[in-house]
């Protein structure tokens, strides 16, 4: 599904190298976790993959099902099936949650040559999915993320994911700022979306989220590269021992 090969990325404005030869492959249907200390480049990786401005790829490639991601505009990547759940979902006053999401769903469908979804169908689908995530129907009418608590914002991200039905989901520290109950709700939402043709890349600081979303593979990232890859046990090892020994071992 997602293939990243020897990716080098620097910040455009500061001429600062962030990713230094990162390679990674997430096959269809798998959940991969990326863990790593602050400043290792985890968020940069999620932004570069989803097409945010301000980063320059100096070397390497990233493809999704063989298509060059890095050449595409952010909306093209979304239409191709990529989704980024933001660490800090953005508030957009004056734009209704529902209007925004229906515009997004239909823009993606249009880009893929599919027919637009009718208001009735959309309403039915979003109500069902919101109920699963325990999102109040009133919240759907409110402006995007405005006045939402931290947990509500993250659940709203998962709702968007559920409605957009991406094939490749990147989750950037979705667990940050969540209490235990909210984390479980988010994890349940993600688990409900797991399927043989959908993959996840879960970026997190802590192992805790991975108790709820069982990864197939865990990567440890440091200084712009993947330094160690293993099974779910690797996350437990991080939790017990911290990054210090692991990173020393990886050289």
């Amino acid at each position: 599904m997602l293939k990243i090969n020897n990716l080098h990325v620097k910040l455009e404005e500061e001429d600062k190298q962030i990713l230094k030869g990162l390679s990674l492959e997430v096959p269809a249907g798998q959940v991969h976790a990326i863990m790593g200390p602050n400043g290792s480049g985890k968020s940069t990786l999620s932004y570069v993959l989803s097409g945010r401005d301000g980063y320059e790829v100096t070397e390497g490639e990233a493809t999704m099902d063989g298509e060059d991601l890095l050449e595409m505009e952010p909306e093209e990547r979304a239409a191709a099936g990529l989704f980024l759940a933001f660490q800090y979902p953005v508030e957009i006053p004056g734009v209704g949650n529902m209007t925004f999401l229906r515009t997004a769903v239909n823009a993606q469908r249009k880009a893929r040559g599919q027919e637009e979804i009718s208001s009735g169908e959309f309403l039915k689908a979003i109500r069902a999915k919101a109920a699963e995530l325990q999102i109040d129907a009133e919240m759907l009418k409110r402006p995007v993320n405005v006045g939402f608590s931290g947990g509500e914002k993250k659940r709203n991200e998962i709702l968007q994911m559920a409605m957009l039905e991406p094939r490749m989901c990147i989750m950037d520290e979705t667990d940050s700022g969540l209490d235990v109950d909210a984390m479980r709700l988010v994890a349940d939402g993600v688990n409900a979306l797991r399927s043989p043709d959908r993959s996840f890349l879960v970026i997190t600081h802590y192992q805790r989220l991975l108790n709820h979303i069982q990864p197939d593979v865990v990567h440890i990232m440091s200084n712009g590269r993947i330094v160690k890859t293993g099974g779910p046990d690797l996350a437990l090892q991080v939790e017990d021992e911290g990054y210090g020994d692991l990173l020393a071992e990886a050289g």
């Binding site: 301000g54 505009e73 909306e75 979304a78 933001f86 953005v90 004056g94 402006p143 968007q160």
Partner: peptide, 27 residues
């Protein structure tokens, strides 16, 4: 720019995303 990227990352084309943000500004 962050809000613009957020909207585009959901598949909303750039021009349409700008319309949303302008309406948001005027709200």
């Amino acid at each position: 720019e962050t809000a613009l990227f957020y909207l585009r990352s959901r598949g909303v084309p750039r021009d349409r995303a700008i319309v949303f943000l302008v309406l948001s500004f005027l709200a």
